[in-house]
């Protein structure tokens, strides 16, 4: 079957369908799939969602075409905001963040959903690869009700048995009470979405497992690109394909610039 959507569009639609009306969605920089996903959800089924991006809080469901930032730190997005906040205010009222949803990437992500934005290499003083730093991810992942790990590459180097450094705690070394034991109030990672598949976290020990395979991708393909054992007992469903309406809205109201169409799906 020929596909008329890209992998990035598939990922965005999967995430969008999982977001609920009324939620507060906190989006970081340089994540076009996430930026598109929250806007798609906003116009498809989330008129009461609030989008928080670069300190601006907006509800733009009434607009015909929703503003996407043209680049990572496009501070012009403030023109669509109902309010703006600096770090002091954004990191206030964390008591309410259980209603908020966050999205995180990672230089490395391990089998328990811990994320590393610090760097790679055994010696912290002489890292082989220095990452950009944790941004606000340690605080946000501590408190938000749930978050999504979204990666734009799926290789044994990005999905590892154990992160060299952990800058955002997922499920630690595993176990459903790992977060409660540390007193972390947030709900932890729900899904890890990559260009190959969607993974979730097993109820008992919280290790990452296959949830859905993107069309045309086999379980063996994913395992070959994953640095830890992804065994699963049940047959894994295929990631639901975008509907024509979702693609139409995505392309004509959200991603007008075609950021998600720059690479065609396999």
């Amino acid at each position: 079957m020929s596909q008329d959507y890209t992998l990035q569009e598939l990922m965005a639609v999967f995430i969008a369908r999982d977001l609920r009306d009324g939620e507060v969605l906190r989006v970081g920089v340089a994540m076009p799939v996430v930026e598109a996903a929250v806007r798609l959800a906003h116009v498809m089924h989330g008129p009461n969602m609030e989008l928080i991006f670069l300190g601006t809080r907006m509800n733009v469901a009434h607009l015909h075409s929703l503003p996407m930032p043209a680049f990572g730190w496009d501070r012009r997005v403030v023109r669509w905001a109902e309010s703006y906040s600096d770090t002091g205010h954004r990191f206030d009222r964390v008591k309410d963040w259980h209603q908020h949803v966050f999205f995180i990437g990672g230089v490395q992500v391990d089998r328990f959903g811990n994320s590393n934005l610090i760097g790679v290499g055994p010696d912290y003083r002489r890292l082989r690869f220095r990452g950009p730093g944790p941004v606000g991810t340690a605080t946000l992942t501590t408190h938000v009700g749930r978050y999504y790990i979204v990666l734009n590459s799926h290789t044994p180097r990005t999905l590892v048995e154990r992160c060299d450094y952990v800058s955002a705690f997922g499920w630690g070394t595993g176990g459903a009470d790992a977060r409660r034991q540390l007193g972390l109030p947030g709900g932890g990672p729900k899904y890890c979405v990559t260009p190959l598949c969607v993974m979730d976290f097993a109820e008992g020990d919280k290790h990452m497992r296959l949830h859905a395979l993107h069309p045309g991708v086999s379980q063996a393909d994913v395992q070959a690109q994953t640095g830890f054992d992804l065994t699963t007992s049940q047959p894994v469903p295929t990631t639901p394909q975008p509907t024509p309406e979702e693609l139409h809205v995505l392309r004509t109201r959200v991603d007008l610039a075609g950021l998600l169409r720059s690479t065609k799906g396999e």
Binding site: T139, T142, H143, G183, L184
Partner: peptide, 10 residues
């Protein structure tokens, strides 16, 4: 005190 970062390598 701050809570964000508990459990991490920071």
């Amino acid at each position: 005190p701050w809570r964000g970062g508990v459990g991490t390598s920071l």
